[in-house]
Design a protein around this nucleic acid. Sequence first.
DNA 1: GCAGGATGTCCAACACTTTGGACATTGGTT
DNA 2: AACCAATGTCCAAAGTGTTGGACATCCTGC
Lengths: 63, 63
Amino acid sequence: MKNKIKEIRKKLGITQKRLAQECSVARQTINCIENNKYDPTLELAFRISKTLKVKVDELFIYE
Amino acid sequence: MKNKIKEIRKKLGITQKRLAQECSVARQTINCIENNKYDPTLELAFRISKTLKVKVDELFIYE
DNA sequence: GCAGGATGTCCAACACTTTGGACATTGGTT
DNA sequence: AACCAATGTCCAAAGTGTTGGACATCCTGC
């Protein structure tokens, strides 16, 4: 399960800290997800997608 | 977090057992998700979406 | 009205996600 | 070189998802 969070986040010019705040999670959570330590819960995936203004299906790549 | 799994599954005429098998999870898992006992992991959400031939963003409703 | 499939539900164990707090490393600016 | 923000990483605790196994209930067809 890959994702484009880091890429899109940087394109939008926001920090991990800021993204974490917008999604109401710890900064480590965003960091771990960006670096593929683990996948987010479905709900968090939706919150991140919403913040980054992309669809879940675009942000995460399954297969 | 709502979802249209039961609705779409029935439209396709498949059982919880069958959907579970296709997604490689226990039948209880599908049952619990359909009845909103808990949300699936992100990966399972993708597997279910793939099996039901819809996008994650269509199958799950956030907000 | 009985049988069999489909669905709902319980439980305890295990796996995975998320957390705060802390510290190390990187990178850019001056 | 020194500063400071941003990022990476560690840990143990708490929360959440998934499981097999078992049993109850609901349909539907015969």
